[in-house]
């Protein structure tokens, strides 16, 4: 099996779905680095995954992880509705049904923090459009642990509040347009 130590985390709220879809539509079929996507959504609705799968390409390996499932290269994981998604030191997913954080479950902060602790400099975390403050603390943790923090530029965000808050708190974060984010991901892949 092809090995990669790297991992990508993407967090988005209101207005982020079009950007996520754009990323998924343009990504190379050989993209080996696992991607973990956390999107805010309504609770007790059936899986968002089905919707994403139906409007993206059939060659992508998209999955909502089960608890304690190992993180595999080449997979794109979507955080299941109504759970926080964490990654343990042994690089397995762990789900958590505790209180919402910043009114959100899944919380972007929770996933970013836990992945920053495990992956350190191997993590690239990308925060997209949104209308609240989730992700701001998570981006701080990513930078503290030596990871790459990227925030969608507020001018290109349908809802700029979330990225603007993260940028204000984290001057070290890279501010990118969706096109630049896609370009960054392309050069990250070893193939």
């Amino acid at each position: 099996m092809i090995e990669t130590k790297k991992i990508v985390a993407i967090g988005g709220s209101a207005g982020s779905l079009p950007v996520v879809l754009q990323i998924l539509q343009t990504i190379s079929p050989n993209f080996i680095i696992p991607i973990v996507i956390v999107l805010h959504r309504l609770k007790n609705t059936p899986s968002e995954l089905d919707k994403i799968v139906s409007i993206t390409r059939s060659d992508l390996k998209l999955k909502e992880p089960d608890d304690k499932e190992p993180v595999y290269p080449g997979y794109i994981y979507i955080a299941p509705a109504n759970y926080h998604l964490l990654v343990e030191a042994d690089k397995c997913f762990s789900l958590d049904y505790s209180e919402p954080v910043q009114y959100s479950r899944p919380s972007i902060d929770v996933t970013f923090e836990s992945m920053a602790a495990v992956y350190g400099a191997d993590l690239s975390a990308i925060l997209l459009s949104g209308a609240n403050n989730d992700g701001m603390e998570g981006i701080t943790r990513v930078i503290e642990k030596g990871g790459k923090a990227i925030v969608q530029s507020p001018v290109t965000s349908e809802y700029p509040v979330m990225p603007a808050a993260a940028i204000r708190k984290n001057p070290a974060a890279f501010v990118c347009t969706p096109v630049e984010i896609i370009g960054y991901l392309e050069q990250l892949n070893p193939f």
Binding site: H84, L86, E88, A89, S94, D96, S98, V110, A117
Partner: peptide, 9 residues
């Protein structure tokens, strides 16, 4: 217990 969520608790 799962370490990551226990630490959060």
């Amino acid at each position: 217990y799962s370490p990551a969520s226990f630490k959060r608790r």
